[in-house]
Amino acid sequence: MSRLVTVAHGTRTTAANAVAREVTEAAAAALGVPGTAAYVELHPPLLTDVMAANHDEAVVVPMLLSTGYHVRHDVPEAVALSSAPVALTPALGPHPLLAAAQVERLREAGAEPGQPVTMVAAGSRDVLTGSDLCVARGLLAAAWGGDVRLAVLTGPGRRPADVVRSGDAVSPYLLAGGFFADKAERDCRAAGAALVAGVLGPHPRVVDLVVERVRAALAPAGAPAPARL
């Protein structure tokens, strides 16, 4: 491997796009290779452009928290534009490292052990997204050691107004700030949430997961999975 390329969704919010760059820089440094943060849409460099100009062996890591249209269609189609071999990893989520990061964000926000939690995700019409979110909710419940309910902001599923109860702590299942993070905060506060934790952001556990995805992609066929960092 000579290059790490990550791909985030992309947003018009500058600070949100910076999260992908920070995670990529940290993961690339840990791996000892150059790193490039790309985006599906809305912000340059687009993955299609990065892959069309790519002449090096690379690993592409989708910095998306669940399976959906981008993971199943847009990203593989972009990867196919590369003139050099490229390994494509699964999306970041669901994964215990993300749940661990969520727990730390909850604690940073002042959540108390045992406090009921609502996990809020962006949501999608893709049926695989719904399955992944149910797994992510279960991972967070296990890591938190308490009740966790799930709400989504778009697509099929219950909205925060229907799920959040007075006194809840809210865990946004979002990589970065922006439209969905702002909406989650507004909707959950309006529903009576006691606190809303920060998004995952460039959390060290997120960096660890990107590194883990790369090492798993490079492991010889049949080799045991790498130990978690």
Score class of each variant (00 low, 15 high):
residue 66 S to R: 01
residue 168 D to S: 10
residue 177 G to A: 04
residue 27 A to P: 08
residue 143 A to L: 08
residue 59 V to F: 07
residue 227 A to D: 14
residue 139 L to R: 12
residue 104 E to V: 05
residue 15 A to Q: 15
residue 57 E to W: 01
residue 64 L to N: 01
residue 102 Q to D: 13
residue 202 P to S: 12
residue 2 S to R: 15
residue 88 L to A: 07
residue 2 S to L: 10
residue 163 V to H: 06
residue 194 A to F: 01
residue 115 Q to D: 09
residue 36 T to L: 15
residue 187 D to W: 08
residue 201 G to M: 06
residue 188 C to D: 04
residue 162 D to A: 15
residue 46 L to A: 10
residue 210 V to P: 03
residue 175 L to E: 08
residue 118 T to L: 08
residue 25 E to N: 05
residue 169 A to L: 07
residue 196 V to S: 02
residue 223 A to D: 11
residue 148 V to Y: 07
residue 52 A to M: 10
residue 36 T to A: 02
residue 132 D to Y: 02
residue 81 L to S: 00
residue 222 G to Y: 10
residue 216 A to R: 15
residue 121 A to N: 05
residue 69 Y to N: 00
residue 24 T to E: 06
residue 208 D to G: 00
residue 5 V to T: 11
residue 89 T to R: 03
residue 135 V to F: 00
residue 49 D to Y: 01
residue 172 P to S: 11
residue 111 A to M: 10
residue 111 A to F: 03
residue 202 P to H: 08
residue 34 P to F: 11
residue 58 A to I: 03
residue 189 R to T: 15
residue 163 V to N: 05
residue 96 P to T: 11
residue 225 A to H: 10
residue 130 G to I: 02
residue 162 D to F: 00
residue 182 D to V: 04
residue 68 G to C: 09
residue 106 L to C: 09
residue 5 V to D: 02
residue 100 A to L: 13
residue 188 C to M: 06
residue 26 A to I: 02
residue 200 L to A: 07
residue 51 M to E: 04
